[in-house]
C-alpha cells in the first residue's frame, strides 16, 4: 500500500484543484460542480439507496456475462490449442468477429433479445469472450513441448494431462485474458444500459444528465471508477494467490 501513496496524493491534489476551480467559477460550476457537492450527492445516493439500486443490476449483468464467457471461452480456447481441426474451424471466425467493437453488437442484440437483462448479459458475454478465448488458446500453444513429453513418458492419461499439466500451465495467460475481459465487461454493460432500459449504473448516469442533476451524474461516474478499482483489486488478489508459485525468492 505504501508504494501506492504518491498515486493517491496525486488524486487528492487533482480533486482539490477541481474543487477550487469550480468554487472560484474558473470553470462552469453547473457543468462541473464542486467535488464537495458531488461527494454529498454520492453520500445521499448511498443513504437513499438510489446508487446501490443502480449498481446491483449492473453487477449482476457483468457477473453473469463474464462467467458465461469464462465457461465457454476457456474450454473452447484449450480445445482450439489442442485439436488442430477445431483451430482451423474457428480461427477465421474469431478473427472476423474479434475486431468488431462490442458496442456494435448492441443494436443486433436488441432485435433478438429485446432490451432486458438477456440482451445486456449477452453483449457482456460476447465482449468478454474473445480475450478469454484467445488468451487460453495462446496459453496452450505456448506450452513447452518438454512438459508434454514429460506427460507422455509418465503415461499420463489424456484427461489427467489436461487437468494436471495443460490447465495449470495455461493459467497465467487465462488469467490475463480474464482481467482484460473484466474491464471490457464493465464498459459494455454501461454502454448497453445507456442505449436501452431503465436500470443499472449506465442508465443512472445518463438519466441524471438528462434531468440536469449534474452532481448525481458525477456521483454515478465516481461510483464506476470505484467499482472498476475494486474489481481489479479483487482480481489481482486472486491472481496473486493462484500464481503464488511464481514468487522466486524467500522460503516457502
Amino acid at each position: 500500500m505504501r508504494d501506492r501513496l504518491p498515486g493517491f496524493i496525486l488524486i487528492a491534489v487533482l480533486l482539490a484543484g477541481w474543487e477550487i476551480a469550480s468554487a472560484t467559477d474558473l470553470v462552469d460550476a453547473v457543468s462541473l460542480p464542486r467535488v464537495s457537492t458531488i461527494l454529498a450527492a454520492f453520500w445521499a445516493g448511498i443513504t437513499s439507496g438510489a446508487l446501490p439500486d443502480a449498481v446491483l443490476p449492473s453487477l449482476w449483468r457483468i457477473f453473469a456475462g463474464f462467467a458465461l464467457a469464462c465457461l465457454v471461452g476457456i474450454p473452447l480456447g484449450l480445445l482450439m490449442g489442442t485439436v488442430a481441426l477445431v483451430y482451423r474451424l474457428l480461427e477465421p471466425l474469431t478473427e472476423f468477429i474479434r475486431p468488431i467493437p462490442s458496442a456494435a453488437y448492441i443494436p443486433v442484440a436488441i432485435l433478438f433479445l429485446g432490451i432486458g437483462d438477456e440482451m445486456k448479459i449477452f453483449v457482456v458475454f460476447l465482449a468478454s469472450l474473445f480475450p478469454i478465448l484467445l488468451n487460453s488458446f495462446a496459453g496452450v500453444r505456448a506450452i513447452d513441448p518438454v512438459l508434454l513429453d514429460t506427460a507422455r513418458t509418465f503415461r499420463t492419461a489424456r484427461l489427467a494431462t489436461l487437468r494436471q499439466i495443460v490447465l495449470p500451465a495455461c493459467l497465467p495467460s487465462i488469467l490475463t485474458g480474464m482481467r482484460i475481459s473484466v474491464g471490457l465487461s464493465l464498459i459494455v454493460a454501461v454502454v448497453a444500459e445507456m442505449i436501452s432500459g431503465n436500470s443499472g449504473i449506465g442508465y443512472f448516469i445518463l438519466n441524471n444528465q438528462r434531468i440536469f442533476r449534474v452532481p448525481e451524474m458525477f456521483a454515478g461516474i465516481f461510483t464506476l471508477g470505484l467499482l472498476g478499482f475494486m474489481i481489479n483489486l479483487a482480481f489481482l488478489r486472486v491472481e496473486h494467490h493462484l500464481l503464488r508459485w511464481r514468487a522466486s525468492t524467500g522460503a516457502a
Binding site: 518438454v146 512438459l147 513429453d149 513418458t153 509418465f154 503415461r155 494436471q164 495449470p168 500451465a169 511464481r246
Partner: peptide, 19 residues
Amino acid sequence: PPPGMIAVFQQYAKSIFPW
C-alpha cells in the same frame, strides 16, 4: 511410451511443474 520406462530430459527446468 511403454510402462516400466521413464525418460529424464536435458531441460529439467522445463520438465518439472513450477506450480
